[in-house]
């Protein structure tokens, strides 16, 4: 096993990496109701994604991603973490 690398470099400080926040369990239902969806229908985020690794996300977690956009000031996106 390779030891977990010390944060040689903080990916969240990179200007191309948007802001990720993990949704609290109590926030999930609100989101699902707002769009009338099941977690499966959300866009996905791979658990192996560097951001997911860094935040130690587990399958089933939902993250809110706020990125900057040229056309609209803030672009909000939700992704559900999947294994594999």
């Amino acid at each position: 096993m390779v030891e977990k690398k010390e944060a040689a470099f903080n990916i969240f400080k990179h200007n191309l990496v948007p802001k990720y926040t993990k949704l609290k369990p109590e926030e999930l239902n609100g989101l699902f109701q707002q769009y009338n969806i099941s977690p499966k229908q959300l866009p996905k985020l791979c658990m192996k994604d560097p951001v997911a690794k860094e935040l130690e996300l587990q399958p089933g977690d939902v993250v809110k991603i706020i990125s900057k956009s040229q056309t609209v000031k803030e672009r909000v996106f939700y992704r559900v973490v999947i294994s594999g």
Partner: peptide, 16 residues
């Protein structure tokens, strides 16, 4: 959304 109701974008082209 796609055929199974899966969300592709939350707003069309992000800016509607």
């Amino acid at each position: 959304r796609g055929a199974s109701g899966n969300i592709v974008q939350f707003h069309y082209g992000d800016d509607d």
